[in-house]
């Protein structure tokens, strides 16, 4: 049993790869139970009247794509199904580009026109200072240009989207991975402007962010990629998230087995040492 403490780490890595590859190659279709934060967000979006403006913060970089991209995709399927209008903004340099690449095909699928149904302001430097400026004038915080460099004056949706406040928008959501992210939105958009706020976050940030949902400061949230899988189930769209959630479930099982084996090895070694 003490051999369990001497397993070659390279073997553990190899098995890790095999476990993840199985999840990628096979469609396991493990059951997905919808949790309250995801359901609350879905219900909130469901109740928004058609034509309502939704502000989407794309506040992450390529390092978090594997968890946050499925959330963005699932959310936009719902938003466009509901005929809501969207303004995308990013406090992260790559956020605008990631948003454009993700949203364009979904918008085309639902026949949504750029400029009329959705606008991507792209990356705007200045972190929370810029976000604060958006609450008084979007035109000013965006320097009057969108992600592609076009003037906002030529985009009909921007005649309606003047400022990031509760009189203009029905919901703000930030898909975020750190700073700037949800903390800035909580202080500026939720606490000051009283605008309904939601959060799309990484699995590792869930314990930090979920208290904001429990306290009622967030109307809902995506708790990691599992949240995206739950949202896909609610919206009725088959995407990458359910598969990623399968991978997470397998990985959790694999890690749990390793932890049990490691503990058996440790306890056996300790007992043997005590006996001597």
């Amino acid at each position: 049993m003490q051999a369990l403490l001497k397993i070659d780490t390279r073997l553990i890595y190899l098995l890790t790869f095999v476990v993840v590859a199985v999840a990628v190659l096979a469609t396991l279709g493990l059951p997905v139970r919808v949790t309250p934060p995801t359901k609350a967000l879905y219900d909130f979006v469901e109740k928004l009247p058609a034509g309502t403006l939704v502000w989407v913060g794309m506040d992450y970089g390529p390092g978090s794509k594997s968890e946050l991209d499925p959330q963005v995709v699932a959310f936009f399927h719902h938003v466009f199904k509901k005929d809501l209008k969207v303004v995308i903004h990013s406090m992260w340099t790559m956020g605008g580009k990631i948003g454009q690449e993700l949203v364009e095909p979904i918008a085309a699928q639902y026949g949504k026109e750029y400029g009329r149904d959705w606008v991507n302001l792209g990356y705007k430097p200045g972190n929370e200072t810029n976000l604060r400026l958006c609450t008084s004038s979007i035109k000013e915080c965006a320097a009057n240009v969108d992600h592609l460099g076009s003037s906002l004056d030529h985009l009909p949706l921007m005649q309606q989207a003047r400022a990031l406040d509760k009189n203009t928008f029905g919901l703000a959501i930030t898909f975020n991975t750190g700073t700037p992210g949800i903390r800035e939105y909580l202080a500026i958009v939720q606490a000051e402007k009283q605008l309904a706020l939601a959060d799309g976050t990484l699995q590792m940030s869930v314990p930090e962010d979920i208290p904001f949902f429990q306290s009622g400061q967030l109307v809902g949230m995506f708790p990691g990629v599992r949240g995206a899988a739950e949202y896909e189930v609610l919206v009725g769209v088959k995407g990458a998230a359910v598969k990623a959630a399968d991978g997470q479930s397998l990985a959790a099982l694999y890690v749990a087995i390793l932890v049990i084996l490691g503990n058996i090895g440790y306890l056996t070694a300790r007992r043997a040492a005590t006996a001597q």
Partner: peptide, 12 residues
């Protein structure tokens, strides 16, 4: 949660 997040990165 952090461990699971790392697995999602690897999965990507």
């Amino acid at each position: 949660n952090t461990v699971l997040f790392r697995y999602t990165l690897l999965m990507g």
